[in-house]
Nucleic acid binder design. Structure first.
Lengths: 109, 109
DNA sequence: CACACTACTTGACAATGCAAGGTAGTGGTG
DNA sequence: CACCACTACCTTGCATTGTCAAGTAGTGTG
């Protein structure tokens, strides 16, 4: 997969996932991984950024299967930011797709 | 505009533009700029990368309005790469868009 | 000749993803 | 109990690519 395409989009995907339900980091790695390839070294720093910027909050919960899990919960500011990101992405991707279609259409003329 | 979304996509856009017609750098800045915000400091290094990787070739032509223009012409390898990039982008953007739709649909249920 | 405009180039910097490795808790096996 | 596997979290160093700002040069105009 093209690494560069992911830049910035992962933030959107992570926010989308936690906007549905609180998740812990390790879980996000596998859930986000179903959408796009990703690894721990990417997700944890991203979660720290989102937390620093108050787009999400964390709380710990014990687990019977290992160390305590740190859950991430989206904040109100996070939902606002998510809406902006979503809109920006949809507009951006559509602009690029339209341009691809335009140039491809010209091929046949 | 979200800077990060652009990563990697600019390469696709530039290749698309020169796949239609040879262009010189300064011209690409303005043509690509109609699709996404971009500035010279981004385009020229990108063109150098594409040239180093043999996805395009350059030739100089005199201009009556200033210094000689360096034109960029896509190569066969460039067209092959462009097709791959295009396919990857379409797949990637569709995957993300589908995920956005899925999560947004759930909101209403 | 100073200036504006065209055109190309470069260097320092910022953002973000990856690979690899480290720290810890829990439970099972010899 | 020693060891190992698995879960879970975190960090460091690096690569890629975009931005900003500045610089170099050629051409024509007042």
């Amino acid at each position: 997969m093209n690494t560069q395409f992911k830049k910035g989009v992962l933030e959107l995907i992570v926010l989308l996932v936690i906007s549905k339900e609180d998740k812990y980091g390790y879980q996000l790695v596998s859930e986000v991984g179903r959408i796009v390839d990703v690894n721990e070294g990417t997700i944890y720093p991203l979660l720290k950024r989102l937390t620093n910027e108050k787009y999400c909050e964390t709380y710990l919960e014990q687990s019977a299967e290992g160390p305590a899990r740190k859950y991430y919960k989206i904040t109100v500011a996070g939902r606002v930011y998510l809406d902006i990101l979503k809109r920006e992405w949809l507009e951006f991707s559509q602009t690029v797709n339209n341009f691809i279609k335009e140039t491809s259409k010209d091929d046949k003329e």
